[in-house]
Design a protein around this nucleic acid. Structure first.
Lengths: 160, 160
DNA sequence: GGAATATATGTAGTTAGCTACATATATTTG
DNA sequence: CAAATATATGTAGCTAACTACATATATTCC
Protein backbone atom coordinates (compact mmCIF):
# COMPACT_ATOMS: atom_id res chain seq x y z
CA UNK A 1 0.00 0.00 0.00
CA UNK A 2 2.69 2.43 1.13
CA UNK A 3 4.83 1.08 -1.67
CA UNK A 4 2.15 1.93 -4.20
CA UNK A 5 1.89 5.42 -2.84
CA UNK A 6 5.62 5.95 -3.19
CA UNK A 7 5.50 4.66 -6.74
CA UNK A 8 2.58 6.88 -7.67
CA UNK A 9 4.15 9.95 -6.17
CA UNK A 10 7.41 9.03 -7.90
CA UNK A 11 5.72 8.84 -11.26
CA UNK A 12 4.07 12.20 -10.65
CA UNK A 13 7.39 13.79 -9.79
CA UNK A 14 9.36 12.07 -12.53
CA UNK A 15 10.37 15.23 -14.39
CA UNK A 16 11.79 16.70 -11.21
CA UNK A 17 13.76 13.57 -10.45
CA UNK A 18 15.19 13.44 -13.94
CA UNK A 19 16.24 17.04 -13.75
CA UNK A 20 17.97 16.65 -10.42
CA UNK A 21 19.81 13.55 -11.51
CA UNK A 22 20.93 15.40 -14.61
CA UNK A 23 22.25 18.31 -12.53
CA UNK A 24 24.10 16.02 -10.23
CA UNK A 25 25.80 14.06 -12.98
CA UNK A 26 26.71 17.23 -14.83
CA UNK A 27 28.34 18.77 -11.78
CA UNK A 28 30.44 15.70 -11.10
CA UNK A 29 31.27 15.54 -14.81
CA UNK A 30 32.77 19.01 -14.60
CA UNK A 31 34.89 17.90 -11.62
CA UNK A 32 36.16 14.86 -13.49
CA UNK A 33 37.37 17.04 -16.35
CA UNK A 34 39.00 19.32 -13.77
CA UNK A 35 40.70 16.32 -12.15
CA UNK A 36 42.39 15.75 -15.51
CA UNK A 37 43.36 19.40 -15.64
CA UNK A 38 41.11 19.89 -18.65
CA UNK A 39 39.07 23.05 -19.00
CA UNK A 40 35.95 21.48 -20.41
CA UNK A 41 32.26 21.75 -19.67
CA UNK A 42 29.99 18.74 -20.05
CA UNK A 43 27.42 20.82 -21.91
CA UNK A 44 29.97 21.40 -24.67
CA UNK A 45 30.20 17.73 -25.42
CA UNK A 46 27.39 17.24 -27.95
CA UNK A 47 28.47 20.15 -30.14
CA UNK A 48 32.19 19.50 -30.03
CA UNK A 49 31.91 15.75 -30.40
CA UNK A 50 29.68 16.17 -33.46
CA UNK A 51 32.10 18.62 -35.04
CA UNK A 52 34.96 16.26 -34.22
CA UNK A 53 33.19 13.44 -36.05
CA UNK A 54 31.68 15.38 -38.95
CA UNK A 55 34.18 18.25 -39.35
CA UNK A 56 32.05 21.06 -40.85
CA UNK A 57 28.35 21.76 -40.29
CA UNK A 58 25.93 24.65 -40.35
CA UNK A 59 23.95 25.67 -37.29
CA UNK A 60 20.64 24.01 -38.07
CA UNK A 61 22.04 20.63 -39.15
CA UNK A 62 24.24 20.63 -36.09
CA UNK A 63 21.21 21.38 -33.90
CA UNK A 64 19.22 18.61 -35.55
CA UNK A 65 22.08 16.19 -35.17
CA UNK A 66 22.39 16.74 -31.44
CA UNK A 67 18.65 17.26 -30.99
CA UNK A 68 18.79 20.82 -29.68
CA UNK A 69 16.69 23.84 -30.51
CA UNK A 70 18.92 26.07 -32.63
CA UNK A 71 19.15 28.97 -30.15
CA UNK A 72 20.69 26.54 -27.64
CA UNK A 73 23.31 25.59 -30.19
CA UNK A 74 23.97 29.22 -31.04
CA UNK A 75 24.66 30.12 -27.44
CA UNK A 76 27.01 27.15 -27.05
CA UNK A 77 28.79 28.12 -30.26
CA UNK A 78 29.22 31.63 -28.91
CA UNK A 79 30.99 30.27 -25.83
CA UNK A 80 33.10 27.88 -27.87
CA UNK A 81 34.10 30.66 -30.20
CA UNK A 82 35.20 32.75 -27.23
CA UNK A 83 37.27 29.77 -26.07
CA UNK A 84 38.72 29.60 -29.60
CA UNK A 85 37.71 25.95 -29.86
CA UNK A 86 35.61 26.51 -32.99
CA UNK A 87 35.42 29.02 -35.83
CA UNK A 88 32.76 29.90 -38.37
CA UNK A 89 32.69 30.96 -41.99
CA UNK A 90 29.96 31.79 -44.47
CA UNK A 91 28.78 29.14 -46.90
CA UNK A 92 29.67 30.57 -50.32
CA UNK A 93 26.85 28.73 -52.06
CA UNK A 94 24.06 29.50 -49.60
CA UNK A 95 25.05 32.69 -47.85
CA UNK A 96 22.40 32.26 -45.13
CA UNK A 97 24.40 29.40 -43.77
CA UNK A 98 27.13 29.70 -41.19
CA UNK A 99 29.57 26.84 -41.39
CA UNK A 100 31.17 25.82 -38.14
CA UNK A 101 34.29 23.76 -37.52
CA UNK A 102 36.85 22.99 -34.85
CA UNK A 103 39.97 25.13 -34.68
CA UNK A 104 43.38 23.54 -34.30
CA UNK A 105 43.06 24.21 -30.57
CA UNK A 106 39.69 22.50 -30.60
CA UNK A 107 40.95 19.47 -32.47
CA UNK A 108 43.94 19.23 -30.16
CA UNK A 109 41.74 19.43 -27.08
CA UNK A 110 39.35 16.80 -28.35
CA UNK A 111 42.10 14.40 -29.17
CA UNK A 112 43.56 14.69 -25.66
CA UNK A 113 40.16 13.89 -24.26
CA UNK A 114 39.88 10.28 -25.26
CA UNK A 115 41.37 9.02 -21.95
CA UNK A 116 39.01 11.26 -19.98
CA UNK A 117 36.04 9.97 -21.91
CA UNK A 118 37.21 6.48 -21.20
CA UNK A 119 37.09 7.17 -17.49
CA UNK A 120 33.74 8.90 -17.70
CA UNK A 121 32.27 6.10 -19.77
CA UNK A 122 33.52 3.52 -17.30
CA UNK A 123 32.25 5.41 -14.26
CA UNK A 124 28.91 6.12 -15.92
CA UNK A 125 28.54 2.52 -16.97
CA UNK A 126 29.27 1.46 -13.40
CA UNK A 127 26.53 3.73 -12.09
CA UNK A 128 23.91 3.12 -14.73
CA UNK A 129 24.41 -0.54 -15.41
CA UNK A 130 22.04 -1.72 -12.72
CA UNK A 131 19.15 -4.11 -13.15
CA UNK A 132 17.26 -1.46 -15.10
CA UNK A 133 19.88 0.21 -17.23
CA UNK A 134 19.31 3.99 -17.23
CA UNK A 135 20.69 4.62 -20.73
CA UNK A 136 18.56 1.88 -22.18
CA UNK A 137 15.56 3.08 -20.19
CA UNK A 138 15.99 6.59 -21.63
CA UNK A 139 16.25 5.19 -25.14
CA UNK A 140 13.17 3.09 -24.62
CA UNK A 141 11.18 5.97 -23.15
CA UNK A 142 12.21 8.26 -26.00
CA UNK A 143 11.11 5.57 -28.43
CA UNK A 144 7.71 5.19 -26.77
CA UNK A 145 7.25 8.97 -26.69
CA UNK A 146 8.08 9.16 -30.37
CA UNK A 147 5.42 6.59 -31.09
CA UNK A 148 2.78 8.35 -29.00
CA UNK A 149 3.26 11.36 -26.74
CA UNK A 150 2.65 11.51 -23.03
CA UNK A 151 -0.30 13.83 -23.59
CA UNK A 152 -1.85 11.60 -26.27
CA UNK A 153 -1.58 8.62 -23.96
CA UNK A 154 -3.20 10.57 -21.15
CA UNK A 155 -6.03 11.65 -23.45
CA UNK A 156 -7.01 8.03 -23.99
CA UNK A 157 -7.61 7.68 -20.25
CA UNK A 158 -9.37 11.04 -19.98
CA UNK A 159 -11.90 10.06 -22.64
CA UNK A 160 -12.74 6.83 -20.85
CA UNK B 1 31.60 -0.82 -33.49
CA UNK B 2 29.18 1.90 -34.47
CA UNK B 3 26.91 0.69 -31.69
CA UNK B 4 29.73 1.13 -29.18
CA UNK B 5 30.35 4.62 -30.38
CA UNK B 6 26.71 5.54 -29.92
CA UNK B 7 26.75 4.09 -26.44
CA UNK B 8 29.89 5.95 -25.49
CA UNK B 9 28.62 9.23 -26.81
CA UNK B 10 25.29 8.55 -25.11
CA UNK B 11 26.95 8.00 -21.77
CA UNK B 12 28.97 11.18 -22.18
CA UNK B 13 25.83 13.16 -22.94
CA UNK B 14 23.70 11.51 -20.30
CA UNK B 15 23.04 14.64 -18.24
CA UNK B 16 21.79 16.46 -21.32
CA UNK B 17 19.49 13.60 -22.27
CA UNK B 18 18.05 13.41 -18.78
CA UNK B 19 17.39 17.11 -18.74
CA UNK B 20 15.64 17.11 -22.10
CA UNK B 21 13.47 14.17 -21.19
CA UNK B 22 12.55 15.96 -17.98
CA UNK B 23 11.55 19.10 -19.89
CA UNK B 24 9.46 17.17 -22.32
CA UNK B 25 7.55 15.25 -19.66
CA UNK B 26 7.00 18.39 -17.61
CA UNK B 27 5.55 20.27 -20.58
CA UNK B 28 3.12 17.50 -21.42
CA UNK B 29 2.27 17.20 -17.73
CA UNK B 30 1.19 20.83 -17.71
CA UNK B 31 -1.03 20.16 -20.74
CA UNK B 32 -2.65 17.18 -19.05
CA UNK B 33 -3.61 19.31 -16.06
CA UNK B 34 -4.96 21.89 -18.49
CA UNK B 35 -7.00 19.23 -20.29
CA UNK B 36 -8.73 18.65 -16.95
CA UNK B 37 -9.27 22.38 -16.60
CA UNK B 38 -7.00 22.44 -13.57
CA UNK B 39 -4.61 25.32 -13.03
CA UNK B 40 -1.69 23.34 -11.72
CA UNK B 41 2.01 23.23 -12.46
CA UNK B 42 3.92 19.94 -12.27
CA UNK B 43 6.70 21.61 -10.29
CA UNK B 44 4.22 22.31 -7.46
CA UNK B 45 3.56 18.64 -6.96
CA UNK B 46 6.28 17.67 -4.46
CA UNK B 47 5.53 20.53 -2.07
CA UNK B 48 1.74 20.32 -2.24
CA UNK B 49 1.60 16.57 -2.10
CA UNK B 50 3.83 16.50 0.96
CA UNK B 51 1.71 19.13 2.72
CA UNK B 52 -1.39 17.17 1.73
CA UNK B 53 0.02 14.05 3.38
CA UNK B 54 1.73 15.60 6.39
CA UNK B 55 -0.42 18.71 6.99
CA UNK B 56 2.00 21.14 8.69
CA UNK B 57 5.73 21.45 8.16
CA UNK B 58 8.48 24.02 8.42
CA UNK B 59 10.60 25.00 5.43
CA UNK B 60 13.69 22.91 6.12
CA UNK B 61 11.89 19.66 6.95
CA UNK B 62 9.74 20.13 3.89
CA UNK B 63 12.85 20.66 1.76
CA UNK B 64 14.49 17.58 3.23
CA UNK B 65 11.37 15.53 2.67
CA UNK B 66 11.19 16.38 -1.02
CA UNK B 67 14.95 16.48 -1.43
CA UNK B 68 15.24 20.12 -2.48
CA UNK B 69 17.65 22.81 -1.44
CA UNK B 70 15.68 25.12 0.85
CA UNK B 71 15.82 28.18 -1.44
CA UNK B 72 14.04 26.13 -4.14
CA UNK B 73 11.30 25.31 -1.65
CA UNK B 74 11.03 28.93 -0.56
CA UNK B 75 10.51 30.12 -4.09
CA UNK B 76 7.83 27.49 -4.70
CA UNK B 77 6.14 28.44 -1.42
CA UNK B 78 6.13 32.06 -2.53
CA UNK B 79 4.24 31.12 -5.71
CA UNK B 80 1.85 28.88 -3.83
CA UNK B 81 1.14 31.59 -1.32
CA UNK B 82 0.31 33.97 -4.15
CA UNK B 83 -2.08 31.34 -5.51
CA UNK B 84 -3.56 31.11 -2.00
CA UNK B 85 -2.98 27.36 -1.97
CA UNK B 86 -0.85 27.46 1.17
CA UNK B 87 -0.40 29.75 4.18
CA UNK B 88 2.33 30.14 6.79
CA UNK B 89 2.49 30.94 10.47
CA UNK B 90 5.29 31.28 13.02
CA UNK B 91 6.10 28.36 15.26
CA UNK B 92 5.37 29.63 18.77
CA UNK B 93 7.94 27.36 20.39
CA UNK B 94 10.81 27.94 17.98
CA UNK B 95 10.24 31.36 16.46
CA UNK B 96 12.83 30.80 13.76
CA UNK B 97 10.54 28.30 12.17
CA UNK B 98 7.87 29.09 9.61
CA UNK B 99 5.10 26.52 9.61
CA UNK B 100 3.44 25.93 6.28
CA UNK B 101 0.11 24.29 5.53
CA UNK B 102 -2.50 23.99 2.80
CA UNK B 103 -5.35 26.51 2.78
CA UNK B 104 -8.92 25.32 2.29
CA UNK B 105 -8.51 26.20 -1.38
CA UNK B 106 -5.33 24.12 -1.47
CA UNK B 107 -6.95 21.13 0.20
CA UNK B 108 -9.96 21.39 -2.12
CA UNK B 109 -7.72 21.54 -5.18
CA UNK B 110 -5.64 18.58 -4.09
CA UNK B 111 -8.67 16.45 -3.42
CA UNK B 112 -10.04 17.13 -6.91
CA UNK B 113 -6.73 16.04 -8.35
CA UNK B 114 -6.88 12.35 -7.57
CA UNK B 115 -8.49 11.48 -10.94
CA UNK B 116 -5.88 13.55 -12.79
CA UNK B 117 -3.09 11.82 -10.94
CA UNK B 118 -4.64 8.52 -11.86
CA UNK B 119 -4.43 9.41 -15.52
CA UNK B 120 -0.90 10.75 -15.23
CA UNK B 121 0.22 7.68 -13.33
CA UNK B 122 -1.29 5.39 -15.95
CA UNK B 123 0.20 7.32 -18.88
CA UNK B 124 3.58 7.54 -17.18
CA UNK B 125 3.54 3.87 -16.34
CA UNK B 126 2.73 3.11 -19.98
CA UNK B 127 5.71 5.15 -21.16
CA UNK B 128 8.24 4.06 -18.56
CA UNK B 129 7.33 0.46 -18.11
CA UNK B 130 9.57 -0.82 -20.86
CA UNK B 131 12.18 -3.53 -20.58
CA UNK B 132 14.35 -1.22 -18.50
CA UNK B 133 11.92 0.62 -16.26
CA UNK B 134 12.89 4.30 -16.03
CA UNK B 135 11.60 4.89 -12.49
CA UNK B 136 13.39 1.84 -11.22
CA UNK B 137 16.51 2.83 -13.15
CA UNK B 138 16.46 6.27 -11.51
CA UNK B 139 16.04 4.72 -8.09
CA UNK B 140 18.88 2.32 -8.73
CA UNK B 141 21.17 5.04 -10.03
CA UNK B 142 20.40 7.27 -7.05
CA UNK B 143 21.18 4.34 -4.79
CA UNK B 144 24.51 3.67 -6.48
CA UNK B 145 25.38 7.38 -6.34
CA UNK B 146 24.58 7.44 -2.65
CA UNK B 147 26.92 4.55 -2.09
CA UNK B 148 29.75 6.13 -4.08
CA UNK B 149 29.60 9.30 -6.14
CA UNK B 150 30.25 9.60 -9.84
CA UNK B 151 33.43 11.55 -9.14
CA UNK B 152 34.72 9.01 -6.62
CA UNK B 153 34.12 6.22 -9.10
CA UNK B 154 35.96 8.13 -11.80
CA UNK B 155 38.89 8.76 -9.45
CA UNK B 156 39.47 5.03 -9.12
CA UNK B 157 40.05 4.82 -12.87
CA UNK B 158 42.15 7.98 -12.95
CA UNK B 159 44.54 6.60 -10.39
CA UNK B 160 45.06 3.42 -12.37
C1' DG C 1 11.08 37.38 -62.97
C1' DG C 2 8.54 39.10 -59.05
C1' DA C 3 5.49 37.62 -55.10
C1' DA C 4 4.78 34.24 -51.79
C1' DT C 5 6.76 30.89 -49.10
C1' DA C 6 10.40 28.42 -46.83
C1' DT C 7 14.71 28.16 -44.56
C1' DA C 8 18.82 29.87 -41.74
C1' DT C 9 20.37 32.54 -38.24
C1' DG C 10 20.00 35.54 -34.43
C1' DT C 11 18.05 37.98 -30.09
C1' DA C 12 15.25 38.39 -25.93
C1' DG C 13 13.22 36.60 -22.30
C1' DT C 14 11.59 32.30 -19.47
C1' DT C 15 12.19 28.27 -16.44
C1' DA C 16 13.19 25.38 -12.31
C1' DG C 17 16.44 23.94 -10.11
C1' DC C 18 21.04 25.30 -7.75
C1' DT C 19 25.10 27.61 -4.55
C1' DA C 20 26.86 31.31 -1.81
C1' DC C 21 26.04 34.53 1.29
C1' DA C 22 23.39 37.15 5.06
C1' DT C 23 20.70 37.42 9.19
C1' DA C 24 17.96 36.00 13.16
C1' DT C 25 17.04 32.94 16.76
C1' DA C 26 18.19 28.61 19.59
C1' DT C 27 21.23 25.63 21.82
C1' DT C 28 25.42 24.23 23.85
C1' DT C 29 29.37 24.75 26.56
C1' DG C 30 33.21 26.77 29.36
C1' DC D 1 25.11 33.10 31.94
C1' DA D 2 27.70 34.86 28.11
C1' DA D 3 30.27 33.40 24.05
C1' DA D 4 30.53 30.17 20.48
C1' DT D 5 28.19 27.29 17.57
C1' DA D 6 24.29 25.44 15.17
C1' DT D 7 19.99 25.88 12.87
C1' DA D 8 16.14 28.25 10.16
C1' DT D 9 14.95 31.30 6.86
C1' DG D 10 15.71 34.52 3.28
C1' DT D 11 17.96 36.98 -0.88
C1' DA D 12 20.82 37.35 -5.02
C1' DG D 13 22.53 35.62 -8.82
C1' DC D 14 23.83 31.38 -11.83
C1' DT D 15 22.77 27.64 -15.25
C1' DA D 16 21.47 25.24 -19.51
C1' DA D 17 18.04 24.27 -21.76
C1' DC D 18 13.67 26.29 -23.94
C1' DT D 19 9.88 29.27 -26.93
C1' DA D 20 8.56 33.33 -29.43
C1' DC D 21 9.76 36.64 -32.31
C1' DA D 22 12.70 39.19 -35.93
C1' DT D 23 15.41 39.42 -40.03
C1' DA D 24 17.97 37.96 -44.11
C1' DT D 25 18.50 35.07 -47.93
C1' DA D 26 16.83 31.11 -51.05
C1' DT D 27 13.47 28.72 -53.48
C1' DT D 28 9.16 27.99 -55.70
C1' DC D 29 5.44 28.99 -58.53
C1' DC D 30 2.31 31.78 -61.24
Amino acid sequence: MEQNEIDASGLLAISTRLQRLSDRIRKDGLLIYKAFGIDFQPKWFPVLYTLYKKSTMNVVSLSDEIGYAHPSTISLLKELEKEKLIRSKKDKVDTRKRLVELTEKGTALLSTMEPVWDVIIKATAEITNTENNLMKAINEVEASLKEKSFLQRAEVYIKK
